[in-house]
């Protein structure tokens, strides 16, 4: 565990708690992509199946359990409790366009051809693109609420910090996992455009809106 990894994890935790809190507090999930949240739920569930097979640390187990619980709670709020506020007209990205190719790739490119390993690989690949429905939704409506943009910033920071963590681990521990690194870089690149808008608009007190 290095500092980049720890701050990355905390940023990840902050992001998902922030989104859950916002939906709960405003009693609304307007502007939030339910499809991205379903895919993140799928990411955590398929990745953390090793909760049952492999104990790493209290920290690891606790964080995994929190991620799964928060993801399920968020999906529940969007699709059940506050369904009336869900912007389904703008959440039109087709999940199968991501899940099917990613599933195929996980079968073809993985470390080991076993069920758990393929599901882990699937989850790594899926996480790298799971935010696309949310970004697509923002590009469709042309704007995002400020808390939603803080959520995206925290989530993107987590990915960027993980890259620094991998560089650190490569140099100091000789450890690297190419699948995680490539997928993590793809994922971080997807946030670059958003980071630019966040720094130029939201940090100056403006709402995130796209130029017409």
């Amino acid at each position: 565990m290095n500092i980049f990894r720890l701050v990355g994890d905390l940023s990840h935790l902050l992001a998902i708690l922030l989104l859950l809190w916002k939906i709960w507090k405003t009693r609304s999930c307007a502007g939030v992509s339910g499809k991205s949240q379903i895919m993140f739920g799928l990411v955590y569930i398929t990745r953390y199946l090793d909760l049952f097979t492999n104990f790493i640390s209290i920290y690891n187990t606790t964080m995994k359990a929190i991620f799964i619980a928060v993801a399920i709670a968020t999906i529940y709020l969007i699709y059940f409790k506050f369904k009336a506020t869900y912007d389904s007209n703008h959440d039109t990205f087709r999940m199968e366009f991501l899940i099917v190719p990613v599933g195929g790739l996980a079968f073809l490119v993985n470390h080991d051809f076993t069920a758990l390993e393929i599901l882990w690989t699937f989850s790594i690949y899926l996480e790298s693109v799971a935010i696309l429905p949310q970004l697509f939704m923002i590009s469709k409506t042309g704007e995002a609420e400020t808390i939603t943009s803080h959520y995206l910033f925290a989530l993107g920071s987590y990915r960027a910090l993980y890259i620094v963590n991998w560089v650190y681990r490569y140099y100091f521990e000789g450890f690297f996992d190419l699948i995680a690194i490539v997928a993590g870089c793809v994922q971080t690149i997807l946030y670059c455009d958003f980071f630019y808008l966040y720094v130029t608009k939201v940090m100056h007190g403006k709402k995130l809106s796209l130029p017409a």
Binding site: R5, N54, S57, D112, W120, F175, F176, D177
Partner: peptide, 10 residues
Amino acid sequence: KYAKSEKDEL
């Protein structure tokens, strides 16, 4: 070096 047991990242 790659080992499956090293899946300590979240």
